[in-house]
Amino acid sequence: MDRIEKIRNGDVRTASRLIRDLEDEFPQAVSAIKELYPYTGQARVVGLTGAPGAGKSTLTDGILEALRKKGKSIGVLAVDPSSPYTGGAILGDRIRMQRHAEDPKVFIRSLATRGALGGISKAVGDSIHVLDSMGKDFVIIETVGIGQQEVEIMNYAHTVIVVLVPGMGDGVQTIKAGIMEIADVFVINKADRDGADTLAAEINLMLDMAASNQQIWRTPVVKIGNVINASEFKQGIDELLGHVDKHFQYLQNSGEIKQKMKNKALFEIKAALNNNINQVIYEQLLNDGSLETMINKMTERSSDAYTLSETVTAKYLKNI
């Protein structure tokens, strides 16, 4: 059996190695994605994003439990940050999900950001294709702990869950651009803490104002209490998954899913173009020493970045 067949049959080791090849940018990984791509597009992709320590991993664990009860198979991509100094990383998201580690229907893979700033890593897009072609019903992506504007997850997920916790600022934070705009479902996690109701009210106010610009999907706000209170926590997870399902139905019924998939395709094409054109030219310039010359011309003020890059364009992109 070749590795494409193995992956399509759900072989964990082959899939995990391919994800690693993607992360390490091995050229043979790209050819595997080319072969797998026709078999993708089946899995539902759900993204969880929010600040560090907001509870994304614990929620993911709860979601895994609930989806497994329904007999679903799930792939999880959990992203944690790489060190800007050493390139090392502590990938600790799966600590919260280890009870599912031996479940053959659950495949959890940790990824480091490796310098990517959008909240996920460069390999996430293709890693979704890998899990999708393994036949997973759901792919859950847990982003790195984020701030206000790491919104790249919106390009990959059908449904984005933004996880908030009480006590992170006043109502003005809720109307700011960026992360607050990309939620398809809001979770107010640790809702047993003071301030959860105020936060819920502020978000609802923001959403009701936004609803006037002919939005059809009204983003729901789900409060989920402490995981220690198991039955309440499970109730919260069920409510959350109910909204995730409704959102997916909305995407299909409204036809919005087509636009979403087009955006995703465009995003992936841009990334591939960047890889095949920009990156290639950059490496060429680096290797033949002309990058060094360009840098020197810049610092000596004998040329500028625009003139230099136009020279490169003229040399390499002849038809433009």
Partner: peptide
């Protein structure tokens, strides 16, 4: 290990050999 540049998957306490 992180400082040595490794990607470290840390699973936490009380893991069975199977896990």
């Amino acid at each position: 290990f992180r400082d040595a540049g490794f990607e470290v998957i840390y699973t936490g306490l009380r893991q069975t050999p199977e896990r």
